[in-house]
Design a protein around this nucleic acid. Structure first.
Lengths: 336, 336
DNA sequence: GTGAAAGCGCTAACAT
DNA sequence: ATGTTAGCGCTTTCAC
């Protein structure tokens, strides 16, 4: 039913080879022929069959991203923006983006296997890296192309972009200390995540830099969710000596913490400083607006795809490892 | 390099035909043979090539969703949840989900064309329907399978699920009127959207039901975004006779409106009632928590995919048109 | 119950 | 500069 390259060739009284090459812009077809081919192909509404091309070229012209989430409602705006970036960059390079969700666990492994084995995708983008990440091990060992947002703690080399959570949180702690905060709490992420190791290290480094002793009791674990932040903050705020400042591992955590503060009758920005990480749009609209460390998620995503596609094309990467600094955006939630 | 059906056949000393049929569970292979085939195939790590299968069967085993958004940062959690639902249901049925973003306009048309023409996907899911939606026209005319979240105003029949915005907003207005509100404002969506027509109609129907005259001045346009809601609310609240209640076409709009209220020194829930639509998670964490009309986005998405896949399999749909009622969730933002 | 063979639509050696 | 040919890996008649 649909127009094939054969139909076009027949109409033009050319071989399908010539048509194929003309369409792909090879330079061994006469300029005039090429133009005729292109014109007629368009007229006839010819669209190359992806499946045939893939089968022949052994390449899917698609990349994949598996959203790492545990809940059906992965309400983190971070991912929305990330996916938008991935999709836009991929589309602009005529690649498809396959998306799936899988919580870390068995099903996750199956997804990765399915996509890599069946060559449904030519490359993968990973995010929310674990310190010890079997995905990296698996893909590296398979020789399957991938890029990651963030590193692991493993010695396996691969292209990545990382946003410097350590430096960011250290700067944030110094900022809070400059406002006379001495009891600064940290609501972290699950301990197996690289970002948790980094951000916690940054928090500790910041404390040390300003001469505040690290206090175990002021560190809690959230789940990078509003609810996680809320619950952790409730505990921290009910301490005999509650903190005067609260840092969330991400903005959602901080937003949840703000709610806990309000419920205790605290005015955020006056009685309690709160800050997060990510720079999601919500953070501008909270009451009061949230101080945060901004990372350019959309751009990050585009750049990652760009790196991945270079990898696929066998082009050398200008930069294989990119470290970006998050930008401290000070808003009312930390006083002022 | 990868194991093909040929390798498996050779190892088993069977024809590829038999292997293929055994793997697909046909009943004309000896049970014993089938088991051997399946076992050996697994042992050898055989994974069928998608491209080959697609080419042969003329079917992609994939569905597509183009996120309708105008900005790079499509921070609406609605879409996150929707995509999660689409992806999960698709994956559970062994389909891929292709995702792309395109703002309504020319690029959007190209995306739809690309996906339908190249048979990259077997079916499409549409959302955020327009009253007059060329996408529906185009796909219907092409005979391309699709399902939609929401209807259009056109006479073209297709499977859809719709959440009754009209009934929802009518109920919401009645609820507000019961709390003695007489000046109820509505911050709508762009006028070409079906949901806007419905929700506005519901608003008007609600007013009429409780005997409040419709007042043009109390209707503003947002863009279904926080910023849109914020700006519209600023205008409305600076009216000589400002509203005492504010309905946003969605939760983001309402959240933006709450911010505008705070900036004017109004206490939401006491000086001003605010309500939205969607039931996104943010709405539970605002200050105060937001009254909203909840729609089960994740489930909707799964059901839409389920409908679409039935369509692709030529199965008759149990229900071709589904109308669901949103659930009014009353929280503190509307007093109480 | 199993196998031989054709062909999905395309690309890329290898002619000419 | 253009054409011939051989598959890519799979499914599916059609024989046996």
């Amino acid at each position: 039913m649909p127009v094939t390259i054969r139909d076009v060739a027949k109409r033009l009284k050319l071989s399908i080879t010539t048509v194929s090459r003309a369409l792909d812009g090879y330079d061994d077809v006469a300029a005039e022929t090429r133009e005729r081919v292109i014109r007629v192909a368009r007229e006839m509404g010819y669209v190359p069959s992806r499946a045939a091309r893939q089968l022949r070229r052994q390449r899917a012209d698609a990349i994949g991203y598996i959203i790492p989430t545990s809940k059906p409602r992965f309400a983190d705006p971070f991912f929305s923006e990330f996916i938008a970036g991935l999709g836009d960059e991929a589309a602009s390079r005529h690649f498809d983006l396959l998306v799936s969700t899988a919580s870390p666990g068995e099903a996750e492994g199956q997804m990765y296997e399915r996509w890599t084995q069946s060559k449904r995708v030519d490359g993968l983008v990973l995010s929310r890296m674990r310190l010890n990440d079997w995905r990296v091990e698996y893909l590296a060992q398979m020789g399957f192309p991938f890029v990651t947002l963030g590193r692991t703690a493993m010695p396996i080399d691969h292209p990545y972009i990382e946003v410097d959570g350590r430096a960011g949180f250290a700067a944030l702690v110094r900022h809070l200390a400059a406002w006379e905060h001495r009891r600064i709490a940290y609501i972290g992420a699950p301990p197996d995540l690289k970002l948790q190791a980094d951000r916690l290290a940054g928090y500790r480094a910041g404390l040390e830099a300003v001469g505040i002793a690290f206090d175990d009791a002021l560190v809690a674990e959230g789940h990078l969710t509003r609810v996680g932040g809320y619950e952790a903050a409730r505990l921290l705020l009910s301490l005999p000596e509650p903190p005067t400042a609260l840092i969330g591992a991400n903005d959602l955590t901080a937003i949840g913490a703000m709610r806990a503060a309000r419920e205790r009758g605290l005015i955020v920005g006056r009685d309690l400083a709160v800050a997060g990480f990510d720079g999601i749009e919500d953070a501008e609209h909270t009451q009061p607006p949230l101080t945060t460390l901004n990372q350019p998620v959309y751009e990050l995503a585009r750049r990652l795809v760009s790196m991945l596609l270079s990898l696929l094309d066998g082009e050398p990467l200008a930069e294989r490892h990119i470290l970006l600094q998050p930008e401290l955006i000070v808003r009312e939630s930390t006083g002022g």
